[in-house]
Design a binder for these strands. Structure first.
Length: 595
RNA sequence: GGUUCCGUAGCUCAGUUGGAUAGAGCAACUGCCUUCUAAGCAGUAGGUCUUUGGUUCGAAUCCAAACGGAAUCACCA
């Protein structure tokens, strides 16, 4: 809350107390709606009974009280129905923009002295990344940036799922149909090449099932009996036993995938402080299971499988180790939790994982609690909604996925087309042009995916291209470029962006609103932090850019003849530019200086 | 079937702890480039906030039920 709001609330508080003997500790102000005059609105309905007066009368009396109590702040008030609308003196806005312009930590909240670990991306090494991963990666990266700006120490990790039956499927298919092709020989990016064999496995598997069913076998049995599936299971066993040939193939194909992912991550502009692999953490998970077994937290069934009973927590019995002693998904997560704690000892640990795994994380956190380790607390599942297509959920095996690399390339190409159409790259070198196309394409894509509340599922229609106009990344980037242009021209003309602001004339409405918005940045940032929600920042960036464009359109900056007014507007533009740049950098979006 | 989540303009989404006549963008239509970048600005049109009942000064928001949709309930991850 800004100091302006604090002063207003304190004054209203004492007004309520002295006028009506009402002592209220939790008062809230709201923004005045556009169609009424004023900046802040106080709603008096809740006090009519206790004050034994009509709403209008209470508002009237409070308004007079404010005028007398804080005359330097409050210029006027209007009573509309039961709403007390408060207008502030221009001097308040002048001093606010002055403060913001000089605030060295305008973009940084106070240190929290807390370390937060955030795990995101978490791909499987059997197929390339798709649109869902893009939402995950942009979200994880952005939340990390937001938390940093919010005063937390942040560690970014990525847990790669590089082992298991699904990995063996692509390995087996490669062995059967691959003819030793490599990313180099085929010209196919490593992760896509491996993904090709994952699909090939599924195709062969389905054909075998069909054949068995045609021969009179039940579908369920056919799924288990299909030779290629049995081969895959045998391969998994061989892997767990460290079979040299299988390990060699596994390492070779994984290295292709990792190289491919690295390229994709670079395009996305995301990075990690530490990459974990499940092949390195699942054994630690097994140890934790043994430990818990001895402590009686887990129990063993006659077939040797190990379980935990969470019925008291309203859940079910859950398996933590298979009867053959191999680990399952949750075993690995237990091990990873411990490893992360040993490596970083964070106060909080966030898992950026889709909401289809809500139940899994509920179980995991209960298990960790029961283990009663230092990492049993502070765990949070940042559960985001799926990206659906008009046809429904994306399914990799059925080929109904939007590939991440393809989509990014398409976005950059679209950015190129738009930019060339508009003839916006005069004087750019080829390198600068390409950088701009990338910044704009990715800006559009990131904004598109981040502007929506993370918790909600969202729709992507591949038939409709992502916009570059309106509520979009490029719109905000464009506003920044405009401001940069003003800066350049101001400096050419010898105008300073640093000077003091002197109050002379009355502020225009669009100036006041811009200052007001700039003044709310920190509280929006805090809100984004508390909710792990980049969409708060996205929404703010758009509002700010929109307001700036209105201001820009209505008023002259460089052509303003009154030097004091010009100075104010220049600083207003400059601060807006810096704020936009900072805000969208939290979304992983670059602010071009020209476009 | 159990559990959880969702339902706001033709489409994609905002909508703070309940507050005024429910907001943006896209798409449609009308204006504005000889002046700081028109990827912009201003305007018109578009709504039974799925439905019904309840709580109260006041409900898109809280409660209940119905209808519609999604996720999950694996010795998959």
């Amino acid at each position: 809350m800004s100091s302006i709001q604090v002063q207003l609330i304190n004054s209203i508080q004492s007004g309520l107390s002295s006028l009506f003997q009402i002592d209220e500790t939790e008062l809230s102000l709201q923004e005045t709606k556009k169609e009424f005059e004023g900046t802040y609105t106080f709603v008096v309905f809740p006090y009519t009974q206790r004050a034994a007066k009509a709403p209008g009368q209470i508002a009237q009396m409070l308004g007079e009280f404010l005028l007398a109590d804080i005359p330097s702040l409050v210029k006027a008030y209007q009573v509309v129905q039961g709403f007390l609308n408060i207008s502030l003196h221009d001097s308040v806005w002048y001093s606010l923009i002055q403060d913001i312009a000089q605030d060295k930590s305008a973009f940084q909240l106070a240190p929290k002295n807390e370390k937060i670990l955030i795990e995101y991306s978490s791909p499987n090494t059997n197929k390339p990344l798709h649109l869902g991963h893009l939402r995950n990666n942009f979200l994880g990266y952005s939340v990390a940036e937001i938390l940093k700006a919010g005063g937390y120490e942040v560690v970014k990790t990525n847990l790669v799922n590089d082992r298991g039956i699904h990995i063996c499927k692509s390995m087996l298919a490669y062995r059967l149909f691959g003819h030793r092709e490599t990313p180099e020989s085929s010209g196919i990016k490593g992760d896509h090449l491996v993904g090709k064999y994952y699909v090939a496995f599924d195709k062969a598997y389905k054909a075998e099932i069909e054949k068995l069913v045609a021969g009179g076998m039940e579908a369920e049995q056919a799924k288990n009996q299909a030779p290629i599936m049995q081969q895959a299971q045998a391969m998994l066993l061989a892997w767990e036993q460290g079979d040299a040939e299988v390990m060699e193939l596994w390492e070779k194909m994984n290295s292709w995938v990792f190289a491919g992912f690295e390229t994709s991550y670079q395009q996305m502009g995301v990075n990690f402080d530490k990459i974990y692999r499940e092949s390195n953490t699942y054994l630690l998970g097994k140890k934790l299971v043994e430990e818990g077994l001895q402590q009686g937290i887990f129990y063993q069934k006659p077939d040797n499988s190990v379980w935990i009973n969470l019925e008291a927590e309203g859940l079910d019995e859950k398996l933590v180790l298979r009867k053959d002693g191999t680990s399952v998904y949750i075993t690995q997560d237990m091990g990873t939790a411990q490893l992360k704690y040993e490596d970083f000892g964070a106060n909080q640990s966030i898992y950026v994982v889709g909401n289809e795994q809500d139940y899994h994380f509920e179980v995991l956190f209960h298990i960790l609690k029961k283990l009663n380790k230092p990492f049993s607390t502070g765990n949070y599942h940042l559960s985001y909604g799926m990206v659906d297509l008009p046809s429904g959920k994306m399914k990799s095996r059925e080929g109904t996925v939007v590939d991440a690399d393809d989509l990014m390339e398409e976005m950059v190409n679209t950015a190129k087309e738009r930019t060339l159409e508009l003839g916006k790259i005069e004087g750019f070198t080829e390198e600068e042009s390409n950088a701009l196309f990338h910044q704009l394409g990715m800006g559009a894509l990131k904004y598109f995916l981040l502007k929506v509340d993370p918790k909600k599922r969202m729709l992507f229609n591949p038939e409709e291209s992502i916009d570059f106009q309106g509520n979009t990344g490029p719109f905000i980037q464009y506003t920044h470029a405009r401001i940069c242009s003003i800066r350049r021209k101001a400096l050419e003309k010898g105008f300073s962006l640093e000077g003091n602001i002197n109050q002379t004339s009355a502020l225009a409405e669009s100036e006041k609103e811009l200052i007001y918005l700039l003044g709310t940045y920190k509280s929006r940032l805090a809100e984004a932090c508390d909710n792990f929600s980049p969409s708060v920042i996205a929404q703010y960036s758009f509002d700010l850019a929109k307001q700036f464009n209105k201001f820009y359109n209505e008023l002259s900056i460089l052509n303003e003849e009154n030097e004091q007014v010009r100075q104010l507007r220049l600083i207003l533009a400059d601060v807006t530019g810096k704020t936009i740049q900072h805000a969208i950098s939290l979304l992983g979006i670059v602010s071009p200086e020209r476009m």
